[in-house]
Design a protein around this nucleic acid. Structure first.
Lengths: 130, 130
DNA sequence: TTTGACCTTCACATCAATGTGAGGGTCGGA
DNA sequence: TCCGACCCTCACATTGATGTGAAGGTCAAA
């Protein structure tokens, strides 16, 4: 599949797909004419990159952890240095922190919305006294 | 408390604290000499901002949802426009998506690390065949 | 009273993630 | 063969979150 189709299927711009490649997050092949050639699995891959990016991870980190997240592992265990394990552990903890922070804030929003809805139905009694 | 102390207690640079103010995320008072004067609750507030920012939310969104997350509500229910409710609902869903994405990826890392550890103990049998 | 450690504003620098456009090939169909 | 819709590279622009430094005011302690 060429870049246009991948762009359409993932919602990422062509420019962005080239940027991901420049950042070594994806490595499409090339056909004879120089066009990038993407495989089916690149669709999921791009979605994953977009998600991680949107969640605040920089490409630098994504590049490091991505090879470990593939289903048929693309990095093998004897290639794995202690440094790499340390990075993964650190990122694992970091992700957990982010998740906790987001969860707390999301729940606060939910609480707030729930309160608003309760107010709306039980009458407009506002506790300005708080 | 002055900006230096707040910076030290929150781990945010002075520059950043001024930036947050410029972005209307915090509103310290001023003493006679023009120095910013922060209250105790600003410590938590800054941590929350840092967390949200680190998790990928732009200041624009943080500014919108922050007033709703305070414990003594600083925004009251009759001030709340339908547009604001819509924004909160949208952000709530968006946060949920982010959380799911991060959770999936964190769990993948955990799986990977678990597999690595299993390999280390049960011998170096590598499934290159995958 | 001077020095050092604060604080102020202003402004330019940087990095990551993007957009946008120029200048130019490739290719399939009218 | 020519047009339109693709693709390429290169490169400059922008936005958001920061760093950094200049030029200067405040204040406490020596």
């Amino acid at each position: 599949m060429k870049i246009g189709e991948l762009a359409e299927r993932t919602g990422a711009s062509r420019r962005l797909l080239r940027y991901y490649e420049e950042q070594k997050l994806i490595s499409p092949g090339r056909s004879d004419n120089g066009y990038r050639e993407y495989a089916e699995f690149h669709v999921g891959r791009v979605m994953q990159i977009k998600g991680l990016l949107d969640a605040g991870l920089p490409t630098r980190i994504i590049r490091q952890i991505l090879p470990c997240l593939d289903q048929p592992r693309s990095i093998y265990f004897d290639d794995l240095t202690p440094e790499m394990v340390a990075i993964l552990e650190r990122e694992h903890d970091h992700l957990t922190q982010r998740i906790d922070c987001l969860t707390r804030n999301r729940d606060s929003i939910a609480d707030y919305l729930a309160t608003v809805r309760r107010m709306k139905t039980t009458g407009e009694a506002i506790d300005r006294a708080a």
